[in-house]
Design a protein around this nucleic acid. Sequence first.
DNA 1: TTGTTATTTCAAAAAAAATTGAAACAGGTG
DNA 2: CACCTGTTTCAATTTTTTTTGAAATAACAA
Lengths: 110, 110
Amino acid sequence: MLLEVPEPIRKQVEKKGGMKGIILTLPDKSSIENEALMHKVLSNPLRIRILNLVSKQSLCVCLIKQAIDISDSKLSYHLSILEEAGLIVGTKKQNWIIYEVTHFGKEHAL
Amino acid sequence: MLLEVPEPIRKQVEKKGGMKGIILTLPDKSSIENEALMHKVLSNPLRIRILNLVSKQSLCVCLIKQAIDISDSKLSYHLSILEEAGLIVGTKKQNWIIYEVTHFGKEHAL
DNA sequence: TTGTTATTTCAAAAAAAATTGAAACAGGTG
DNA sequence: CACCTGTTTCAATTTTTTTTGAAATAACAA
């Protein structure tokens, strides 16, 4: 039996070109995957906090650590995820690495 | 020794009221957690696809399933996460449950 | 050289999220 | 009643993410 569906829905769907027509209007796989990826990066409270902090003020890891109060390796892990996503970037200055928000990151912070 | 930091950073931080001053301007814990939670919900491609689909057209589970092509229980699992987040809502009509996007969900879809 | 600071990397363990398949349930129909 | 259909729930498993602590690295200072 060919998939029964509620009548009003059937009609609405028909008007939009059937399920195929509707499906055609959806974003394609890779743009959905990119969107999901960005949400994944921002799905952790620590990372949001770090991104917010760094977008208020570029900081060395040691000052970020002081503000966020987590272990070095944990901080480094989250910084690397933010950096890989292109939201922040770290550059070596003398003894320190200064992380700052990128243009792209600014759109997402706050 | 009291935490050495790069001199230019130290000065910029000083101008903003020190680390304490900067930290005070950050969103509070619970609003950050809420934000993270919403990103977590949208961090899965299947869920984004379902949300997009349902916001084009309210649909019964059986038609969503046809469009997305995953198992019943998997679909149900993701629907429940979207619903719990307030992005979609399912209401029983006769034999079927019709899911539709909420006002809140519309802001996030696409 | 030895030591020290700032930061990352790595492997192991722990925690969280997603998938699976079977079972349950509710509302109809024969 | 026995049987579908549409959908959810549950427990077990798998996969992914996060946390931990130790070790590595790089640069510089004694």
